[in-house]
Simulated scan of single mutants.
Amino acid sequence: MNILYLNGSPRKQASATKKLADAFVEGMLKTVPESIIDEITLYEKAIAPCRGCFGCWHATPGTCVIRDDMDSLLPLFRRAHVVVWSMPLYYFGMPSTMKAFLDRLMPNNSPLFEKRKGGVRHPQRYDAAAQRHVLVSTCGFQESERNFEAIALQFDLLCDDRVSKILCPAGGAFATDHLGSAARKRLEEVQNVGADYTVSGTIARDTERALSIPVYDPDRYMAVVNRLAAIAETPAPDWMGARPSPQAHAVLAAFVARYREDPEPERALTIEFAFSDERSQAALLCETSSCTIEPAPDERAAARIEADVALWKRIVSGDTSISDALLNGTLKVWGDFDAVLRLEDLFVGIEV
Rank of each mutant, 00 (worst) to 15 (best):
L6Y: 13
A14P: 00
S15E: 03
S15R: 01
L20H: 05
A21C: 05
A23E: 01
P33F: 00
I37A: 01
A46W: 02
R51S: 12
R51E: 13
G52E: 11
C53G: 10
T60W: 05
D71S: 07
S72P: 01
L73P: 02
F77E: 13
R79N: 07
A80K: 06
V84M: 01
W85N: 07
L89G: 05
Y91F: 10
P95K: 00
T97H: 08
M106A: 13
S110P: 08
P111C: 05
L112K: 14
K115L: 02
A128Q: 00
A129P: 00
T138Q: 02
T138V: 07
S144E: 08
S144K: 07
E145V: 15
Q154A: 15
C159K: 09
S164F: 04
K165L: 00
L179I: 08
D196Y: 06
A204H: 09
A210K: 13
P214V: 03
P218R: 04
A223Q: 11
A229G: 14
G241A: 13
Q247W: 08
V256M: 09
T270G: 07
E272M: 04
A274M: 13
D277C: 11
A283K: 01
P295I: 00
E299T: 12
E299D: 14
R304K: 15
I305D: 10
W312V: 02
G329S: 03
G329Y: 04
T330K: 13
K332G: 09
K332N: 15
W334D: 05
G335A: 05
F337H: 11
E344G: 06
D345W: 09
L346Y: 12
